[in-house]
Design a protein around this nucleic acid. Structure first.
Length: 272
DNA sequence: AGGCAGGCTTTTA
DNA sequence: TAAAAGCCTGCC
């Protein structure tokens, strides 16, 4: 179906943003996106018009919420103070179209545990191997097969050899223990949504293999806490270079996470 | 108590 | 060979 989207939206920039790992190039300049057991091709027809390879019902039910279409990212972007934050402003202009996806919480948790101390191609490779090993095989709108992100029970049921085959390295035990905790019901990720940002961060950091950085990524990308501000090596370098006197996270509350994405993506694309 | 060094798997550039 | 969207353990 054809969809008109007038707010900031760039599938290409989202695919490169580092927040999601299952957006890949499809035919004819389209992006192929896998989420929530479904797969869709998104193709830009003009600045504001997009073709989604799904029904209107599926778009409304799955893709529109996933793409966070009820939040105005243009509004957030335009709140940036060009005078006091020139580099952030420039980052937001060049990365206009990035949105914070409403990803599945479990998928985000496992994905960002896998992400630690690795670059994006390696992260994507491990996640695809994990989906191949434990996800369900389905067929997309173009007749191509894809695999869903596995349920916690399916990951917990993998043998050590199968999990090792996903090239997780020392993260294998982190993924295994987290999946087992969720599968057993001992850890209810949905229930945690009632916690404040600080409490949720603490709770996630109590998990084996989850530190401050991964916890903040899970808040931002898995719980849609738009104020979460993951600090990684890139953000450290950016703040050192452009905010030597310190970066004030009060100013853009409650959208610090959106600003973080503009900065991170811009630094990766254009340099710091 | 809180901070720091060293180690960890594998891939990428 | 160093670095990579880091975290854990042990030591001080």
């Amino acid at each position: 179906m054809r969809v008109r989207i007038e707010d900031d939206f760039s599938p290409a920039l989202i695919a490169e943003s580092g927040q999601c790992f299952r957006w890949n190039d499809g035919p004819d300049g389209s992006l192929r996106v896998i989420h929530a057991g479904s797969c869709v091709y998104i193709k830009a027809l003009s600045d504001d018009d997009y073709e989604f390879s799904c029904s209107e019902d599926e778009y409304e039910r799955i893709w529109r919420p996933y793409l966070d279409m009820d939040v105005s990212y243009a509004g957030i972007r335009e709140s940036i103070d060009k005078e006091t934050d020139p580099w952030l402003y420039e980052a937001a202009v060049s990365q206009r179209g990035i949105r914070i996806l409403r990803q599945d919480t479990f998928e985000a948790l496992i994905s960002f545990i896998i992400s630690q101390n690795r670059n994006i191609p390696a992260i994507k490779r491990s996640i695809e191997l994990l989906c191949d090993a434990a996800g369900e095989e389905r067929t997309d709108a173009k007749g191509m097969s894809y695999r869903t992100f596995p349920e916690s029970e399916r990951i917990a049921a993998l043998t050590d050899e199968e999990l090792d085959g996903c090239r997780l390295g020392y993260r294998t035990s982190y993924v295994k223990r987290t999946a087992e905790l969720v599968a057993s019901g001992e850890l209810d990720l949905e229930e945690l949504n009632a916690l404040s940002d600080d409490r949720l961060t603490q709770k996630l950091m109590s998990l084996y293999g989850v530190g401050a950085k991964v916890a903040n990524c899970v808040l931002l990308f898995g719980y849609h806490r738009l104020d979460a501000f993951p600090v990684d090596v890139w953000i450290k370098r950016i703040l050192a270079a452009h905010y030597p006197a310190g970066y004030d996270t009060e100013k853009y509350r409650p959208y610090n996470g959106v600003m973080q994405q503009y900065m991170f993506a811009h630094a990766r694309a254009e340099g710091i």
